[in-house]
Amino acid sequence: MIPAAFDYTRVGSVDEAVQALGQHGEDAKVLAGGHSLIPLLRLRLAFPSVLVDVGRVDEMRGVRDDGDHLVIGAATTHDEVMHDDLVRQHCPVISDVVSQVGDPQVRHRGTFGGGIAHGDPAGDLPALALALDATFVIAGSGGRRDVAASDFFVDYLQTVLGAEDVLVEIKVPKLGSDWGHNYQKFNRVAQAWAIVGSLALVRRSDGSIDEARIGLTHMGSVPLRASATEQALAGASTDVIADACDQAAEGTSPPEDLNARADYRQHLARVLTRRAVEHALGG
């Protein structure tokens, strides 16, 4: 309950943050809402020497309209994202998934970017970002760069973010009203992390499915897309949903823990994906 000692510095801009990280190197950690980091500090599972608090960096907060995209500041809290009018209008799936992150108190303080940058495959947001084909804007000592969600997650709790990088904002495509969505989060108690989650984004026209994007939570060391299912659904009639979703676990090697061995996780992925697709289609 008592973290090991560290220094603390609050920065007012992304540039300052990058500079501070550059100064302290590997021993520094970015602090935004703190809801992934502070629990690790309290249990002495992380020992940074410096925390760089970006929680008040204005350019990292809020949601803005950027033509065919929305841009979400990484330090925007879950609660702000969830209730944001632009998000609700153009990308309501985000609102829906974020409302299932943690609990109300966690959503009031935890940030959208933090939930992604932590790189926990059991978190709800990595699979969301992946299914949305989101783009991450990362500031580092070499300037800013865009990284596609599909390139961002490297391994368990590991992303492309380097020691001197700051995740500044997340760009997500606006989804038209022809997109339906549903997130099936499967856990044993409300507070727990997902044993498996399946997020379906489905674009429908004239009784068939134009396009489907499926994000899977906790089915590997990184968030995954159910590509085989997506391909089977693309341009197909709704009759094929069950067969297509039977392929949802293809290519996954899910972790094993007290709640689920791998075969059960794969089974859940298939069932939850089918349910998510059906619900996304308004079923």
Binding site: Y8, L31, G34, I38, D53, Q105, H108, R109
Partner: peptide, 19 residues
């Protein structure tokens, strides 16, 4: 440990005093 932090419920064990 829940308190209202700037008007919203928050867990005061997961906030640094510095924040």
């Amino acid at each position: 440990c829940t308190v209202l932090f700037n008007g919203r419920s928050a867990k005061s064990c997961t906030i640094l005093a510095a924040q």
